[in-house]
């Protein structure tokens, strides 16, 4: 039954990984503006459809860069 120690350790490590990921995302400001990204993510696909020279424009239009 001492495998429980291993399992506990794994479960806590996984939980901590998610916790740290959460803290990092807050710190980077991902929770500051929860609206704009939801609109922004819809742009790129449409852009490919609408512009002729997709090569240059999509690269430039990527708003996350």
């Amino acid at each position: 039954m001492s495998v429980i120690y291993v399992l506990l350790a794994i479960s806590i490590v996984i939980a901590l990984v998610f916790f740290v990921a959460f803290i990092v995302s807050v710190k980077r400001g991902q929770y500051d503006d929860s609206y704009t990204p939801s609109v922004r993510m819809l742009f790129e696909d449409e852009l490919v459809k609408n512009t002729s020279d997709t090569n240059t424009t999509t690269k430039k239009a990527n708003p996350t860069k």
């Binding site: 503006d33 609206y35 704009t36 609109v39 922004r40 742009f43 424009t57 430039k60 239009a61 708003p63």
Partner: peptide
């Protein structure tokens, strides 16, 4: 967010809606 197409000197623009 596509200001860089209007003027080359714009490196990036980011909107907080």
């Amino acid at each position: 967010e596509n200001m860089n197409k209007l003027h080359d000197a714009v490196i990036s623009s980011f909107v907080d809606f």
